[in-house]
Protein backbone atom coordinates (compact mmCIF):
# COMPACT_ATOMS: atom_id res chain seq x y z
CA UNK A 1 0.00 0.00 0.00
CA UNK A 2 2.65 2.38 1.12
CA UNK A 3 4.83 1.25 -1.73
CA UNK A 4 2.09 1.93 -4.23
CA UNK A 5 1.39 5.30 -2.83
CA UNK A 6 5.04 6.14 -2.88
CA UNK A 7 5.43 5.03 -6.47
CA UNK A 8 2.33 6.91 -7.50
CA UNK A 9 3.57 10.07 -5.93
CA UNK A 10 6.99 9.70 -7.51
CA UNK A 11 5.44 9.15 -10.91
CA UNK A 12 3.09 12.05 -10.47
CA UNK A 13 5.98 14.19 -9.36
CA UNK A 14 7.93 13.25 -12.48
CA UNK A 15 4.93 13.83 -14.67
CA UNK A 16 4.30 17.15 -12.99
CA UNK A 17 7.83 18.32 -13.36
CA UNK A 18 8.02 17.20 -16.98
CA UNK A 19 4.66 18.80 -17.58
CA UNK A 20 5.87 21.92 -15.87
CA UNK A 21 8.90 22.04 -18.14
CA UNK A 22 6.92 21.41 -21.25
CA UNK A 23 4.20 23.79 -20.29
CA UNK A 24 6.58 26.66 -19.50
CA UNK A 25 6.87 28.16 -22.97
CA UNK A 26 3.34 27.20 -23.89
CA UNK A 27 2.25 28.82 -20.74
CA UNK A 28 4.24 32.01 -21.15
CA UNK A 29 3.15 34.55 -20.22
CA UNK A 30 1.05 33.50 -17.24
CA UNK A 31 1.44 36.67 -15.20
CA UNK A 32 1.72 40.42 -15.91
CA UNK A 33 4.89 41.65 -17.63
CA UNK A 34 6.80 44.54 -16.11
CA UNK A 35 7.97 47.18 -18.55
CA UNK A 36 10.64 49.39 -17.00
CA UNK A 37 10.77 52.74 -18.75
CA UNK A 38 14.18 54.42 -18.51
CA UNK A 39 12.75 57.93 -18.65
CA UNK A 40 10.58 60.19 -16.57
CA UNK A 41 6.83 59.89 -17.12
CA UNK A 42 5.33 62.30 -19.60
CA UNK A 43 8.02 62.34 -22.27
CA UNK A 44 7.71 61.01 -25.77
CA UNK A 45 9.49 57.75 -24.91
CA UNK A 46 6.86 57.20 -22.24
CA UNK A 47 4.07 57.97 -24.69
CA UNK A 48 5.48 55.42 -27.14
CA UNK A 49 5.87 52.76 -24.46
CA UNK A 50 2.33 53.25 -23.27
CA UNK A 51 0.90 53.21 -26.77
CA UNK A 52 2.87 50.05 -27.60
CA UNK A 53 1.60 48.32 -24.48
CA UNK A 54 -2.03 48.30 -25.58
CA UNK A 55 -1.63 45.98 -28.60
CA UNK A 56 1.20 44.16 -26.81
CA UNK A 57 -1.04 43.23 -23.89
CA UNK A 58 -3.61 41.99 -26.37
CA UNK A 59 -1.08 39.88 -28.25
CA UNK A 60 0.32 38.30 -25.08
CA UNK A 61 -2.95 38.03 -23.22
CA UNK A 62 -1.43 39.55 -20.10
CA UNK A 63 -1.43 43.11 -18.78
CA UNK A 64 1.75 45.21 -19.08
CA UNK A 65 2.74 46.97 -15.86
CA UNK A 66 4.83 50.14 -16.23
CA UNK A 67 7.42 51.39 -13.83
CA UNK A 68 9.63 54.40 -14.30
CA UNK A 69 13.34 54.62 -13.58
CA UNK A 70 14.37 57.80 -15.30
CA UNK A 71 17.84 59.24 -15.33
CA UNK A 72 21.35 59.01 -16.78
CA UNK A 73 20.02 58.43 -20.31
CA UNK A 74 18.31 55.16 -19.46
CA UNK A 75 21.33 53.74 -17.63
CA UNK A 76 19.60 53.57 -14.25
CA UNK A 77 16.84 51.40 -15.71
CA UNK A 78 19.33 49.29 -17.69
CA UNK A 79 21.39 48.68 -14.53
CA UNK A 80 18.32 47.55 -12.62
CA UNK A 81 17.08 45.28 -15.41
CA UNK A 82 20.43 43.53 -15.76
CA UNK A 83 19.89 42.03 -12.29
CA UNK A 84 16.43 40.67 -13.09
CA UNK A 85 15.68 37.04 -14.01
CA UNK A 86 15.75 36.42 -17.75
CA UNK A 87 12.28 34.88 -17.72
CA UNK A 88 10.55 37.21 -20.14
CA UNK A 89 8.61 39.00 -17.41
CA UNK A 90 10.84 42.08 -17.34
CA UNK A 91 11.68 44.28 -20.31
CA UNK A 92 13.30 47.72 -20.44
CA UNK A 93 12.59 50.67 -22.72
CA UNK A 94 15.71 52.71 -23.42
CA UNK A 95 17.67 54.06 -26.39
CA UNK A 96 20.43 52.69 -28.56
CA UNK A 97 22.86 55.00 -26.74
CA UNK A 98 21.92 53.53 -23.35
CA UNK A 99 23.40 50.21 -24.51
CA UNK A 100 25.85 51.17 -27.25
CA UNK A 101 27.45 54.33 -25.86
CA UNK A 102 26.99 54.78 -22.12
CA UNK A 103 29.12 51.69 -21.24
CA UNK A 104 32.06 53.31 -23.08
CA UNK A 105 31.81 56.22 -20.69
CA UNK A 106 33.06 53.85 -18.03
CA UNK A 107 30.78 54.68 -15.15
CA UNK A 108 28.03 52.10 -15.64
CA UNK A 109 28.32 48.48 -14.50
CA UNK A 110 26.78 46.81 -17.54
CA UNK A 111 27.90 46.26 -21.11
CA UNK A 112 25.91 45.89 -24.31
CA UNK A 113 26.33 42.10 -24.03
CA UNK A 114 24.25 41.86 -20.87
CA UNK A 115 20.96 42.06 -22.75
CA UNK A 116 18.80 40.21 -25.23
CA UNK A 117 17.60 42.83 -27.66
CA UNK A 118 14.02 42.44 -28.80
CA UNK A 119 12.77 45.45 -30.71
CA UNK A 120 13.68 48.80 -32.25
CA UNK A 121 10.38 50.64 -32.38
CA UNK A 122 11.33 54.12 -33.57
CA UNK A 123 14.22 56.30 -34.65
CA UNK A 124 14.53 59.89 -33.48
CA UNK A 125 15.10 62.52 -36.13
CA UNK A 126 18.41 63.40 -34.54
CA UNK A 127 20.29 65.75 -36.80
CA UNK A 128 22.71 68.65 -36.91
CA UNK A 129 20.74 71.81 -37.65
CA UNK A 130 21.43 75.52 -38.07
CA UNK A 131 19.59 78.70 -39.00
CA UNK A 132 18.59 78.94 -42.65
CA UNK A 133 20.07 82.41 -43.16
CA UNK A 134 23.66 81.29 -42.47
CA UNK A 135 26.12 81.40 -45.38
CA UNK A 136 25.97 77.61 -45.83
CA UNK A 137 23.45 74.97 -46.88
CA UNK A 138 24.80 71.70 -45.50
CA UNK A 139 27.55 70.26 -43.35
CA UNK A 140 30.35 70.28 -45.96
CA UNK A 141 29.63 73.85 -47.02
CA UNK A 142 29.57 74.96 -43.39
CA UNK A 143 32.94 73.35 -42.77
CA UNK A 144 34.25 74.91 -46.01
CA UNK A 145 33.02 78.31 -44.87
CA UNK A 146 34.66 77.88 -41.47
CA UNK A 147 37.93 76.81 -43.08
CA UNK A 148 38.06 79.72 -45.49
CA UNK A 149 37.18 82.34 -42.88
CA UNK A 150 39.07 80.75 -40.01
CA UNK A 151 35.97 81.22 -37.89
CA UNK A 152 35.51 78.78 -34.99
CA UNK A 153 32.07 77.11 -34.99
CA UNK A 154 29.99 77.19 -31.83
CA UNK A 155 28.22 73.87 -31.52
CA UNK A 156 25.20 73.27 -29.28
CA UNK A 157 25.69 69.82 -27.79
CA UNK A 158 23.06 67.66 -26.12
CA UNK A 159 25.41 64.99 -24.80
CA UNK A 160 28.83 63.39 -24.87
CA UNK A 161 28.09 61.28 -27.97
CA UNK A 162 27.54 64.28 -30.22
CA UNK A 163 30.63 65.96 -28.79
CA UNK A 164 32.66 62.96 -29.94
CA UNK A 165 31.16 63.33 -33.40
CA UNK A 166 32.05 67.01 -33.42
CA UNK A 167 35.55 66.14 -32.30
CA UNK A 168 35.90 63.65 -35.14
CA UNK A 169 34.77 66.28 -37.66
CA UNK A 170 37.14 68.77 -36.19
CA UNK A 171 40.09 66.36 -36.38
CA UNK A 172 39.28 65.37 -39.95
CA UNK A 173 38.94 68.91 -41.27
CA UNK A 174 41.01 71.07 -38.95
CA UNK A 175 38.05 73.34 -38.23
CA UNK A 176 37.79 74.53 -34.64
CA UNK A 177 34.49 73.46 -33.11
CA UNK A 178 33.56 74.76 -29.66
CA UNK A 179 30.98 72.49 -28.05
CA UNK A 180 28.58 74.23 -25.66
CA UNK A 181 26.47 71.96 -23.48
CA UNK A 182 22.75 72.69 -23.77
CA UNK A 183 20.10 71.04 -21.63
CA UNK A 184 17.23 69.67 -23.69
CA UNK A 185 15.76 70.22 -27.12
CA UNK A 186 13.73 73.30 -26.22
CA UNK A 187 16.73 75.22 -24.95
CA UNK A 188 18.57 74.12 -28.07
CA UNK A 189 15.94 75.77 -30.26
CA UNK A 190 16.28 78.94 -28.19
CA UNK A 191 20.06 78.89 -28.55
CA UNK A 192 19.94 78.36 -32.30
CA UNK A 193 17.18 80.93 -32.91
CA UNK A 194 18.96 83.44 -30.68
CA UNK A 195 22.23 82.92 -32.53
CA UNK A 196 24.12 81.69 -29.46
CA UNK A 197 25.40 78.65 -31.36
CA UNK A 198 26.19 78.28 -35.06
CA UNK A 199 24.73 74.80 -35.26
CA UNK A 200 23.42 72.23 -32.84
CA UNK A 201 22.10 68.73 -32.39
CA UNK A 202 18.34 68.31 -32.26
CA UNK A 203 16.22 65.24 -31.78
CA UNK A 204 12.99 66.52 -33.32
CA UNK A 205 11.85 69.98 -32.17
CA UNK A 206 13.63 71.53 -35.16
CA UNK A 207 11.23 69.97 -37.68
CA UNK A 208 8.60 72.68 -37.45
CA UNK A 209 11.26 75.35 -37.90
CA UNK A 210 12.63 73.53 -40.92
CA UNK A 211 9.13 73.37 -42.36
CA UNK A 212 8.61 77.09 -41.74
CA UNK A 213 11.92 77.83 -43.45
CA UNK A 214 13.78 79.22 -40.42
CA UNK A 215 16.20 76.31 -40.00
CA UNK A 216 17.99 73.81 -42.19
CA UNK A 217 19.20 70.29 -41.50
CA UNK A 218 22.94 70.02 -42.12
CA UNK A 219 23.18 66.25 -41.73
CA UNK A 220 21.44 63.32 -40.08
CA UNK A 221 23.46 62.19 -37.08
CA UNK A 222 23.10 58.51 -37.95
CA UNK A 223 23.52 56.22 -40.92
CA UNK A 224 19.90 56.26 -42.09
CA UNK A 225 18.11 59.07 -43.95
CA UNK A 226 15.58 61.11 -41.99
CA UNK A 227 11.81 60.97 -42.37
CA UNK A 228 10.95 64.67 -42.37
CA UNK A 229 13.99 65.77 -44.41
CA UNK A 230 14.96 62.72 -46.48
CA UNK A 231 17.29 64.75 -48.73
CA UNK A 232 19.72 65.65 -45.95
CA UNK A 233 23.02 63.77 -46.05
CA UNK A 234 23.82 61.30 -43.29
CA UNK A 235 26.93 61.37 -41.17
CA UNK A 236 27.82 57.98 -42.56
CA UNK A 237 27.52 59.11 -46.19
CA UNK A 238 29.78 62.08 -45.36
CA UNK A 239 32.36 59.74 -43.90
CA UNK A 240 32.05 60.75 -40.27
CA UNK A 241 31.14 58.54 -37.31
CA UNK A 242 27.39 57.93 -37.31
CA UNK A 243 25.17 57.64 -34.26
CA UNK A 244 21.52 56.60 -34.62
CA UNK A 245 19.21 57.41 -31.74
CA UNK A 246 16.81 54.47 -31.68
CA UNK A 247 14.13 53.60 -29.19
CA UNK A 248 14.98 50.06 -28.10
CA UNK A 249 13.33 47.38 -25.98
CA UNK A 250 15.56 44.77 -24.35
CA UNK A 251 15.45 42.07 -21.68
CA UNK A 252 18.12 40.63 -19.39
CA UNK A 253 20.46 38.25 -21.26
CA UNK A 254 19.54 34.58 -21.36
CA UNK A 255 15.86 34.41 -22.26
CA UNK A 256 14.73 30.84 -23.10
CA UNK A 257 14.63 30.61 -26.91
CA UNK A 258 10.90 30.02 -27.18
CA UNK A 259 10.06 32.79 -24.73
CA UNK A 260 12.28 35.16 -26.66
CA UNK A 261 10.64 34.20 -29.95
CA UNK A 262 7.17 34.68 -28.54
CA UNK A 263 8.01 38.01 -26.96
CA UNK A 264 9.76 39.26 -30.09
CA UNK A 265 6.86 38.41 -32.37
CA UNK A 266 4.35 40.00 -29.98
CA UNK A 267 6.47 43.16 -29.79
CA UNK A 268 6.82 43.31 -33.58
CA UNK A 269 3.10 42.83 -33.99
CA UNK A 270 2.41 45.62 -31.51
CA UNK A 271 4.93 47.95 -33.16
CA UNK A 272 3.33 47.32 -36.54
CA UNK A 273 -0.17 48.00 -35.23
CA UNK A 274 -1.93 50.95 -36.84
CA UNK A 275 -2.40 52.86 -33.58
CA UNK A 276 1.29 52.71 -32.70
CA UNK A 277 2.35 53.61 -36.24
CA UNK A 278 -0.05 56.56 -36.19
CA UNK A 279 1.65 57.92 -33.08
CA UNK A 280 5.24 57.57 -34.32
CA UNK A 281 4.58 58.70 -37.87
CA UNK A 282 2.77 61.76 -36.56
CA UNK A 283 6.03 62.71 -34.86
CA UNK A 284 8.25 61.73 -37.80
CA UNK A 285 9.99 58.97 -35.85
CA UNK A 286 8.32 55.99 -37.52
CA UNK A 287 10.49 53.27 -39.07
CA UNK A 288 9.76 49.70 -40.08
CA UNK A 289 10.15 48.05 -36.66
CA UNK A 290 13.30 45.96 -36.32
CA UNK A 291 13.27 42.60 -34.53
CA UNK A 292 15.83 40.99 -32.24
CA UNK A 293 18.70 40.27 -34.66
CA UNK A 294 18.54 43.58 -36.50
CA UNK A 295 18.39 45.50 -33.23
CA UNK A 296 21.36 43.62 -31.82
CA UNK A 297 23.45 44.26 -34.92
CA UNK A 298 22.58 47.97 -34.97
CA UNK A 299 23.64 48.22 -31.31
CA UNK A 300 26.91 46.46 -32.21
CA UNK A 301 27.56 48.85 -35.08
CA UNK A 302 26.99 52.00 -33.04
CA UNK A 303 29.05 50.60 -30.20
CA UNK A 304 31.97 49.81 -32.52
CA UNK A 305 31.78 53.27 -34.12
CA UNK A 306 31.88 55.03 -30.78
CA UNK A 307 34.69 52.83 -29.56
CA UNK A 308 36.77 53.78 -32.59
CA UNK A 309 36.08 57.48 -32.11
CA UNK A 310 37.02 57.28 -28.44
CA UNK A 311 40.24 55.41 -29.25
CA UNK A 312 41.02 57.74 -32.13
CA UNK A 313 40.61 60.85 -30.04
CA UNK A 314 42.74 59.36 -27.31
CA UNK A 315 40.36 60.08 -24.46
Amino acid sequence: MFDKLCRASIISAIVLSLGGQAVFAEDYPNKPIEMIIGFKPGGFSDAMARKLSEPLAEALGQPIVHSYMGGAGGSIAATAVKERDPDGYTVVVATSLTFAFNPHQGEVTYSKDDYDYLLTMARFETSFVSLADKPWTDLPSMLEHAKSTGMPLKFGSLGPADRLQAKAISEATGVTIIPLPIKGGANMMQSILGGHVDFGLSGGPHIKYVQSGEMIVLAASGSEPLNATPDAATMESLGYPAVSYNSVIAAPKGLPEDVKAKLESALLEAANSPEFQKLVQGRHVGIPPMGADQTASSIDTISATMENVIKGSGS
Partner: peptide
Amino acid sequence: ASPRMTFGHVELL
Protein backbone atom coordinates in the same frame (compact mmCIF):
# COMPACT_ATOMS: atom_id res chain seq x y z
CA ALA B 1 30.88 64.30 -19.35
CA SER B 2 33.31 62.72 -16.91
CA PRO B 3 31.63 61.73 -13.65
CA ARG B 4 32.33 63.85 -10.59
CA MET B 5 32.00 62.55 -7.02
CA THR B 6 29.62 59.77 -8.01
CA PHE B 7 31.62 57.04 -6.25
CA GLY B 8 30.51 54.53 -8.84
CA HIS B 9 26.80 55.05 -8.33
CA VAL B 10 24.88 55.22 -11.60
CA GLU B 11 22.09 57.03 -9.74
CA LEU B 12 24.40 59.96 -9.09
CA LEU B 13 25.28 60.57 -12.75
